[in-house]
């Protein structure tokens, strides 16, 4: 990948990588560090990522792995809960035209995402928010597609359950 192709790839993908990292880590400062690191690594491995079209899956996979490392470090330190961080991942002003009830549900879903295990969260984000195919996800988590679908079913069920719990707590 040439320098100009790298520059274009970064400009095109930086917000998406940052969005994924922020939603998965539930911490924008850490997401910023992870995104920077992933973008720098793309430059360092530009010879291996010769095709600019391969930059997107490469970057998301790298960011995903960096996020998982961060989550493991958090767990090892025991300084923060993995699954219940209050900060909403999404920008509150991103879609002001939606009806109030839809906004409330979205807020609940964002909070519920923070209460399910990180692997479930990653799978749901990659599949439902970032639109990755089953094949891409299977490669990412290194699991057969059948196993992946089971994991996704469980993740959806957990998310729905957490949304219901949040409603009960209101």
């Amino acid at each position: 990948m040439e320098a100009e192709a790298y520059r274009q790839a970064v400009l095109e993908l930086k917000d998406r990588v940052f969005g994924y990292a922020a939603q998965l880590l539930r911490d924008r400062e850490e997401a910023r560090d992870v995104t920077q690191e992933a973008l720098v690594r793309l430059w360092e491995h530009r010879a291996a990522v010769a095709d600019p079209a391969a930059a997107k899956p490469w970057l998301l996979r790298t960011a995903h792995n960096l996020c998982i490392d961060r989550l493991r470090q958090r767990r090892a330190r025991g300084t923060a809960s993995l699954d219940d961080v209050a900060e909403p991942a999404a920008d509150p002003g991103w879609s002001p035209d939606r009806p109030a009830d839809a906004r409330a549900l979205r807020t609940e879903v964002e909070r519920a995402l923070g209460r399910i295990p990180p692997r479930d969260r990653a799978l749901l984000l990659l599949r439902e928010v970032h639109g990755h195919s089953y094949e891409e996800l299977a490669a990412l988590v290194d699991a057969p597609i059948g196993t992946l679908k089971s994991l996704l079913h469980r993740a959806r069920a957990r998310l729905r359950r957490e949304v219901e719990r949040l409603r009960m707590e209101r």
Binding site: F18, G19, T35, D91, L105, E108, E110, V129, G131
Partner: peptide, 17 residues
């Protein structure tokens, strides 16, 4: 479940870096 998944799919995939 349908409402949860619909709301999930409506989350923004990108945030301004």
């Amino acid at each position: 479940l349908d409402a949860t998944i619909a709301a999930l799919r409506g989350l923004p995939p990108a945030l301004p870096f």
